[in-house]
C-alpha cells in the first residue's frame, strides 16, 4: 500500500488517490482542483486548518503540529533545514 508523499496518509482505495489515479504518489487531499500537488505553503495551510477544524487547537499549536508532520514526509524533505 502506498502512503501519500505529502501528508503520509495510506492510500488503500482508488478514491484515496489524487484524481482517482493510482499511479500518483499523493492523495486526494493534497491535490489542487486541477490534480497537481499542493505547494509547501498550501499544504502547511491546509493541514493547519484541518487540525483547527477537527481538533479545535489554537492556530499556533496547530501550525507547529502541521510542520512537525510535514518534516517527516518525502515531498518536503528539501523544505526544512
Amino acid at each position: 500500500m502506498k502512503n501519500c508523499i505529502a501528508c503520509g496518509m495510506p492510500m488503500k482505495n482508488a478514491s484515496d488517490f489524487a484524481m482517482c489515479d493510482e499511479s500518483k504518489d499523493y492523495c486526494v487531499y493534497c491535490a489542487r482542483p486541477d490534480g497537481t500537488m499542493q505547494s509547501f505553503d498550501e499544504k502547511k495551510e491546509s493541514l493547519t486548518n484541518f487540525i483547527i477544524k477537527t481538533q479545535g487547537l489554537a492556530a499556533e499549536a496547530a501550525e507547529s503540529a502541521a510542520l512537525s508532520m510535514m518534516r517527516k514526509l518525502p515531498a518536503w524533505e528539501n523544505c526544512f533545514d
Binding site: 496518509m9 484541518f50 487540525i51 477537527t54 481538533q55 487547537l57 499549536a61 507547529s64 503540529a65 512537525s68 508532520m69
Partner: peptide, 20 residues
Amino acid sequence: PEEARNAFIAIQSTVSIHFL
C-alpha cells in the same frame, strides 16, 4: 517537549479524519 507532543497530535489527526 513540543516535538513529542506533536506526535500525539498526529495520532489525534488520524483518528479525527476517520471520525470526519
